[in-house]
């Protein structure tokens, strides 16, 4: 029952091969096997959003996914978003608007924001708050996160309207 299965996948544009036990969660695989510890684990039952990653381009909870299910998949984690030297625009917006304090929830928020900017109109703050409601932050009170996202939405729509 505990025998391992070989999987191949792409993470942040890099090819990976690994042998995984079927019961290993994708979040644990990223952190413990590959040392990609940017993906954080909060609740381990799909409620807090800290472990959000992109699977084949869309946001998913990596604690509700098995590593074995990543076979052939394309994964993006927060490490693929940007680095401290070259931050992604979403990351600089979070810095600009003080959209984080302790930072534990931030990787999940960043990945969620990437998906909602791609898929949702986010016409007002209520829609932004609803779209962020799957990620829990215990520090900021959300206001600054909403401001950061609002600035990104304005930028996105300006480019789209050009």
């Amino acid at each position: 029952m505990s025998s391992k299965t070989h999987i191949t996948l792409t993470i942040n544009d890099e090819p990976y091969r690994a042998d995984v036990e079927p019961r290993m969660l994708a979040a644990d695989f990223l952190r413990d096997e590959l040392a990609l510890t940017g993906t954080h684990i909060g609740c381990e039952h799909g409620v807090c959003g800290a472990c959000t990653i992109l699977l084949n381009g869309v946001s998913v909870r990596s604690c509700l996914l098995l590593a074995i299910q990543l076979d052939d998949a394309e994964v993006q984690t927060v490490e693929g978003l940007g680095s401290t030297r070259e931050m992604h625009r979403i990351q600089t917006a979070f810095r600009e608007y003080h959209a984080l304090q302790c930072g534990f929830c931030t990787p999940g928020f960043l990945m969620t924001v990437q998906d909602i900017l791609n898929t949702l109109p986010l016409r007002n703050d209520k829609e932004i708050r609803d779209a962020l409601s799957g990620n829990i932050c215990r520090c900021t009170g959300y206001d600054h996160i909403v401001k950061a996202v609002r600035s990104l939405v304005t930028e996105r729509d300006k480019i789209a309207n050009q």
Partner: peptide, 9 residues
């Protein structure tokens, strides 16, 4: 239905 990340999956 839940949140986007849940609806995606």
């Amino acid at each position: 239905v839940a949140h986007l990340a849940i609806r995606n999956r």
